[in-house]
């Protein structure tokens, strides 16, 4: 069985920036307002304490690693902003605290686990030690008293990894990276079939036509 993505280049949508459509018919006022607001969020904590925030940044770099050649998505800042606003998913297990409490307790527990296992804080661990700790959390192999009633797996699944990934893919840079069309109202799409690209959608790079694709993507409005 052939892997359909085997020959794809790393930069799949070279030159594509979903924000180039910001002033075109694909974005309405409300969307501009909402995304502008998000883009104004920087990597500065308002909910987290400074050491907590550094820890979130370290974990985010593992869960949603970012390439070095482009501006970073402030994942920790986005998570922080959401907690600052006090948004909730609207459900939790009986032994799970509400969002803010879960984060505070979970981060403290991660730090405690790092110190217990390695005698150093999480941010001082090597990358493989950090990953090892996250995998243990995922598998329920952490038992420090700092977790309290909250199961480490549940924290991983419903809070830590979930909130970080959702924050990453709330950002236009992530949208451009995966070639998504982005906001679409009032203008939606016309060409719906296989390999049918509207002129305002990202062109995907094949193996050889990179420059042409880049030119197309730069022209998108």
């Amino acid at each position: 069985m052939r892997d359909p993505t085997r020959h794809k280049p790393a930069d799949r949508y070279p030159g594509y920036d979903v924000l180039s459509k910001r002033n075109g018919p694909s974005w309405n006022d409300k969307t501009r307002r909402v995304v502008d607001q998000r883009l104004s969020i920087d990597d500065e904590p308002r909910f987290f304490a400074a050491d907590e925030f550094a820890l979130v940044q370290a974990v985010a770099a593992l869960i949603a690693p970012q390439p070095a050649h482009r501006p970073m998505i402030p994942v920790a800042g986005l998570v922080d902003a959401k907690l600052h606003r006090g948004e909730s998913d609207g459900f939790r297990a009986p032994n799970m605290p509400r969002e803010r409490d879960a984060w505070t307790r979970g981060l403290a527990a991660i730090e405690a686990e790092a110190r217990r296992a390695h005698g150093r804080g999480f941010c001082e661990l090597t990358k493989s030690e950090q990953i090892d700790l996250l995998e243990k959390m995922q598998n329920g192999e952490l038992h420090d008293a700092a977790w309290g009633e909250m199961p480490p797996q549940a924290f991983w699944k419903h809070r830590l990894s979930h909130d970080i990934v959702m924050a990453y893919y709330a950002h236009p840079t992530a949208w451009s990276e995966i070639g998504w069309g982005g906001p679409a109202s009032p203008r939606g799409y016309v060409r719906l079939d296989f390999n049918d690209r509207d002129s305002w959608e990202a062109a995907e790079a094949g193996s050889s036509d990179g420059d042409n694709v880049r030119r197309i993507n730069r022209g998108i409005r």
């Binding site: 409300k30 307002r33 909402v34 995304v35 948004e87 909730s88 609207g90 982005g182």
Partner: peptide, 18 residues
């Protein structure tokens, strides 16, 4: 808005235990 995060305002997110 054409935005997943913003549109969570349509959901019932009051506290519930599952």
């Amino acid at each position: 808005a054409s935005d997943e995060s913003e549109q969570t305002k349509l959901y019932w997110t009051d506290d519930r235990i599952v």
